[in-house]
Design a protein around this nucleic acid. Structure first.
Lengths: 350, 350
DNA sequence: TCAGAATATGTAAGCGCTTACATCTTGCCG
DNA sequence: CGGCAAGATGTAAGCGCTTACATATTCTGA
């Protein structure tokens, strides 16, 4: 006979409430829930009925504590404000779910200390593996990850000889390729609207890509006009406005991502500047927004979904004890749309 | 002297590892972490040093189990794919954080069974209160919430005499007001692109608002062309294309939200249809996208931030034992932009 | 019919933490 | 200088669950 606790439970129902109601032990309830095949059909039915009657929901903390596993992964992304990480993360999550793993997402607002905090929070909540964006973070954050023996993977960035497992594309090479196309169209006076480069290796790599392309084409990279501002449409618009005050004006404004580019394109309209007739604009990321802007944005296409899927697979393997895999490089191509064209003849009114 | 456990801990460091290293008991470590004022400065320093040395991160589950509180709230939103809920949720989260509460977010993909699942998951993970979107959900979901004694709040919807605490705006009235303006501009042939109305009381309310405005203006609501499709830009575009095949064509296409409207506007351009010259388009929600579309979208402005803040405050009060508050009605106005104008003269080419 | 295998269920020991309570210091006052 | 309040720290009992192990119970074949 199962133990018959006093049934004056005032709080939420627990396993033993269910056990009492079903007339079995807590062990049997636990098995009925987690390993149904080990329990008689009849018993199982009784247990399930009790679960339903009581509106029982297991206590995750207690379960994790006892079972010493959580089936939970974590991801810390810089921001949820825009859609940059949305699609990749969705694919990541979907793949994890197929393997019975829940994803917890936190955001760092591009602040290193906050990222460290969020990593700690996710560990605290039982994350068995973590997805992180880019390589830049505090030594303390890496130390914490090591001390806790948490497998982690850097995504949205692939670098030659990176010392950590990573999956992504070569930000530098992709931006260099796009810039080379811009230059090939005849543009000579270039500008870049970039996110803050401090603490953001992807932004730095993209900046370097622009410089490399200029140098390779025989242009002076020091002549690149640079506006640095946090990612947002409004900031992109403001930065674009500042660039249009330069003399001579740039004929092409490269943007560190599509959100900044959206601001640039919108601001161009407000200023009565034709894109791409007067000024060309390019983005980076190829989020949904890029295609519905007017004009539609020429941008670097990032393989969001594949990256998310691969990241999930790699982390699952690592949790299972696989050796840290080598970096996985994915291709980022160019999505050609309307916002990029040749410069105005005679270099424009600048 | 504190107990000196064997220090061959292979896994992540625990409280007693920290205690051993600092030369104190686990109770003292716990206090140093949670109630620093109860511990001598010297002891506290020693503990903190040990925490740092070991890379200790507390175990949330164990803590929740012992302390019987989690300081965690949950929210189940229909989707994270688009930005509809982003701003409100951000405000909700920010307000909670000010009060030391962490937010866990889950999404239901507009599926009732999945929502029930997610509610259960959040409860399982220790949510002490829940934010839900709209009133429509399974009886089982409500039963579960009651049985678990979880305070919850319905947001993004306010209804006359709703039987549950809610905070939001009157979807029906807002859509009716916008439709009345459309009609006042001279439009007579109206169409509506709406999300699936089954299981979505907001979508139904908005539909009813359109009908009510038509009836009030002496038009036959049965003449309203309705396209029902899940929220997405692509679906909005497809629905718009179908509507443009109607004879006679509608002169105004109302959309159940801004995402559908973005699809409609984009598709109009693709079809060579001028907005608002040939056809007017309106949205609902006033997300960031609305302002940067071409033409910018006339839409219903929703007080996202205030709603999020108020929701947080109400739920915090409820957790503290306050009686369920009466529904809180916020105002939703109209954001006038370029996509709405008078119908073409002579009713257009339809 | 019965031993022994296979299956179903119960018992009870923690998982890592918090906290009521007990114990030990310290400081202060008469 | 004793005694006691106040403060600092230690002890140990669980929180709700899983799971190794022990204990029925049923089934199988000779």
């Amino acid at each position: 006979m199962p133990p018959d606790r006093t049934d004056t439970a005032p709080g939420a129902p627990t396993l033993s409430d269910v056990a009492a109601r079903a007339g079995v032990s807590t062990a049997t309830v636990s098995r009925a829930l987690n390993a149904p095949s080990q329990v008689t059909q009849a018993t199982r039915d009784r247990v399930m009925q009790a679960v339903r009657d009581l509106g029982y929901a297991p206590n995750f903390g207690a379960r994790a504590l006892a079972a010493r596993r959580t089936n939970t992964f974590g991801a810390v992304i810089p921001t949820m404000d825009n859609a940059i990480f949305a699609r990749g993360l969705q694919a990541f999550q979907d793949t994890l779910r197929e393997h019975g793993v829940t994803l917890l997402v936190a955001s760092s607002s591009y602040k290193p200390e906050q990222e460290e905090d969020q990593i700690r929070t996710l560990i605290t909540r039982g994350a068995e593996a973590l997805l992180l964006i880019g390589h830049d973070r505090t030594a303390a954050a890496y130390a914490l990850l090591d001390r806790q023996h948490i497998p982690y993977l850097v995504a949205w960035a692939w670098d030659e000889g990176a010392p950590r497992p990573c999956v992504g594309f070569d930000n530098r090479a992709a931006m260099q390729a796009l810039t080379a196309e811009v230059i090939a169209l005849g543009h000579r006076r270039l500008a870049l609207i970039t996110a803050d480069r401090a603490g953001n290796d992807r932004a730095r790599a993209r900046f370097e890509g622009v410089c490399a392309a200029m140098t390779a084409a025989g242009l002076d990279a020091r002549a690149l006009l640079v506006e640095e501002t946090p990612y947002s449409i409004a900031n992109g618009a403001a930065a674009f406005a500042r660039l249009m005050d330069a003399h001579p004006r740039p004929t092409a404004v490269l943007c560190g991502n599509d959100v900044l580019a959206a601001g640039a394109v919108t601001q161009a309209r407000a200023l009565g500047i034709d894109v791409p007739g007067d000024v060309s604009v390019t983005g980076f990321d190829d989020i949904e927004l890029a295609a519905i802007l007017t004009p539609a944005l020429t941008t670097v296409h990032v393989p969001h979904c594949e990256m998310g899927r691969r990241a999930a697979q790699m982390l699952l393997d690592m949790r299972a004890g696989a050796a840290p895999p080598p970096g996985l490089r994915l291709d980022a191509g160019i999505a050609w749309r309307a916002s990029l064209g040749p410069p105005p003849v005679a270099g424009g009114p600048g």
